[in-house]
Design a protein around this nucleic acid. Structure first.
Length: 111
DNA sequence: GCGTTGACGAGGA
DNA sequence: GTCCTCGCCAACG
C-alpha cells in the first residue's frame, strides 16, 4: 500500500538529490517531473514532506525569486535561512544572495 | 460533489 | 523595472 502518491515521492527524491550548498525552485522540480504547471503542488508536497520524511532538505527549495517563502513552515521561521547559511548559501532576510550562483536545476544537472 | 486555499509560475499592463 | 491577473494541480472544509 502506498503511503503517498508517486507524485510526492518523485518530488522528495529530487529534493534529497540537491547537493549541499545548492538550491532549486519549485517550478524546476515540477518541470523535471514533466509538470511545470504543478509548481504549486510541489510546494504542497514540501508542506507534507515533514510527515513523510523529515530528513528532506526542504530548506534548499525556494521559489523562482530565490525567496524563502516557506520558511514560516519550518520548526522556526529562522531555521531555513540558518540551515542555508550553514551550508554556505548567503541569505539576506528572506532572499538568497547570488541565487543564480547556487541555483541547482535538476533538468540540467540530473539530465 | 463544490468551493476555497496554497512553500508557484508565466504573461500582460 | 514593478504590479496585477490568470492558470494549474492537489488537498482540505
Amino acid at each position: 500500500m502506498k503511503k503517498q502518491p508517486d507524485f510526492f515521492e518523485q518530488i522528495y527524491e529530487v529534493v534529497k538529490l540537491i547537493p549541499k550548498g545548492r538550491v532549486t525552485s519549485y517550478g524546476s522540480i515540477a518541470k523535471f517531473l514533466s509538470s511545470a504547471k504543478s509548481s504549486r503542488v510541489v510546494g504542497y508536497a514540501m508542506n507534507a514532506c515533514r510527515q513523510v520524511d523529515p530528513t528532506i532538505p526542504a530548506h534548499r527549495v525556494v521559489n523562482r525569486n530565490g525567496l524563502l517563502t516557506g520558511k514560516m513552515h519550518f520548526s522556526s521561521p529562522t531555521k531555513m535561512e540558518e540551515l542555508l547559511s550553514a551550508e554556505g548559501v548567503k541569505v539576506e532576510g528572506d532572499q538568497i544572495k547570488s541565487f543564480p550562483d547556487v541555483f541547482w536545476d535538476p533538468t540540467i544537472e540530473l539530465l
